[in-house]
Design a protein around this nucleic acid. Structure first.
Lengths: 306, 306
DNA sequence: ATATCTTAATCACTATTTTTAATCAAAGAA
DNA sequence: TTCTTTGATTAAAAATAGTGATTAAGATAT
């Protein structure tokens, strides 16, 4: 009944080849000889009964079909690695390496506290942090490069396990006169041209802020986009404009300029924070525990501040 | 970096052993000798670094950990089989074997039509039908024993891809006097004791009907539960009670007794029909096509009848 | 009580597969 | 030209998978 399934090692070689796009480098990275890798790919092609590479005497490219096989192979290798890791740490559901990814508008403000709490509450976990965009982190999560991500929701359609861990209110900061105006009449369209500063597009914070405040009108938004919250604040300060900040950043004191006003925005303006992990992961318990820790962390800060 | 991953063949042997709970029978089923299977399991245990079986000189049981490894191993084998099948049928996205499961209150009334349409629209697909309970079908879907399921929604929490394909209205049938009463005043609590007949509990139709009609009150429901729609109708007929039927069954003329009334229930009483498949499947396109066919089928019948 | 059957593990051995080192042929670059 | 880099090929070596016969320990039957 069940067919002649490919060898997992061969699939690993295929992934290496896809990553390095070069037989020699892929072989080196896999700690095998180039001929091993070459024949493994040939064997795979024979076994699967289809062409994975298009060869042209000097070099090669993956066929479209090969690309799809690589994707699936990656799923399989990720799942098997999960199994292997799970067994290695069996009996220690709250142990082992934990590769956690988060975005630049969360990581600096949440993860230092979280790392400390993890050290106390999950002493057997070795935490490895990674900062990147939502898009990249989702790719890395799917590919098994990280184990869990802390993101601002909602995230594009996906098939991960998701756990909401709290809300992060938006603040508005910047020129006192403008802030006062908005405070009295919360219509952002009264603001001068180019007086709203945002992060560059790869940061989801901008989307969330814009959609929360209904300021799609391009004229209001300054055409230069900042690449970090620190820069963003400085730009708003220097150009006497305003910008939006998440509460977790505000709590860490990112606004220190004396002549900048800082106001919490209405209660319905917030971003949701959530944990994501692979549905196939065998460490649900750890991730739920971690979710609880982050939930508590966000709650404590809420109570502390209010 | 990446660990020494287990051999897929060994994982297959592990699954066979789990299925047969006996080394000899599992070995036979895997077309290898008992010693091969025995040493494969030992090797797996060594490689994964943990005990999968508890042996007691005569027989064995899987350890709790072994059971979890089996579950994960099944995922891995299913994924690899998907890859292999995908390659075998590459270039024919609408070809190959399609194992479709459905429940007893859908299968007899929908699948004959669907099979015919498939033969026309998807001539390269070989359709294999399977009828079972929602619970069993979900297990079979997860374990790769079927490729797609047509179920009545909602189904318990799961991680499958789901596509709603239409609505199936509820009808009420049975004793004319009772039906007339309900028709004038749609309060089911006026019905006599034990006059509502339902399918046995493993059929989700009962749940859906009960929750749709708000008749949790046990007194109304007859304490004998039918095991098929045909029996259900006969029971309602014989005992002069009433019962609920899905439109797709009504359309196929399951109510033929002259002295039985048949009324469509209010528009908000229906069950949703949906297709489910593994998120990891490589045949999304086929399943979406199939969804469309079923959607059309349900729509046509709706138009045809109204 | 004894013999027989069934169980999974083990052993010595064989077959198969994987890997290697060395080489080859083709294409650029110096 | 000569040198380097590319992936494919070869034959030999190493590792792995598989086999049948055997064993030990319970269970069952006589």
């Amino acid at each position: 009944m069940s067919a002649n399934l490919p060898n997992l090692k061969h699939l690993q070689y295929l992934l290496a080849l896809h990553q390095y796009q070069n037989f020699n480098r892929a072989a080196d990275a896999s700690f095998v000889s180039q001929s091993t890798l070459s024949s493994a790919i040939l064997k795979l092609e024979e076994q699967l009964g289809c062409q994975l590479l298009e060869r042209d005497h000097k070099s090669f490219v993956f066929t479209p079909h090969g690309e799809e096989v690589v994707k699936k192979a990656r799923q399989i290798i990720v799942a098997t690695t999960e199994l292997s890791d799970y067994c290695r740490h069996y009996g220690m559901p709250f142990g082992g390496n934990l590769r956690l990814g988060s975005i630049p508008t969360i990581a600096p403000y949440l993860l230092t506290d979280l790392a400390e709490i993890c050290q106390q509450q999950l002493p057997d976990v070795s935490l490895y942090l990674r900062e990147d965009t939502t898009e990249n982190l989702m790719r890395m999560l799917a590919d098994g490069e990280i184990d869990v991500a802390i993101l601002a929701l909602p995230v594009p359609q996906h098939s991960f396990q998701q756990k909401v861990v709290g809300r992060d209110a938006f603040y508005i900061t910047g020129n006192s006169a403008l802030i006062n105006k908005v405070k009295q009449d919360p219509d952002y369209h009264q603001l001068p041209q180019h007086s709203i500063f945002l992060l560059s597009q790869e940061h989801c914070l901008s989307e969330h802020a814009v959609s929360a405040c209904n300021v799609e009108d391009q004229g209001l938004i300054h055409p230069f986009y900042a690449s970090s919250l620190t820069t963003l604040i400085q730009m708003a300060h220097y150009h006497k404009g305003v910008t939006f900040l998440p509460k977790m950043a505000v709590d860490k004191g990112v606004v220190s300029q004396k002549d900048m006003a800082l106001e919490k925005m209405p209660d319905d303006m917030y971003r949701e924070i959530g944990l994501l992990w692979r549905t196939t992961s065998m460490r649900q318990r750890l991730f739920l525990k971690l979710s609880q820790l982050v939930t508590d962390l966000l709650d404590v800060e809420k109570i502390h501040k209010s």
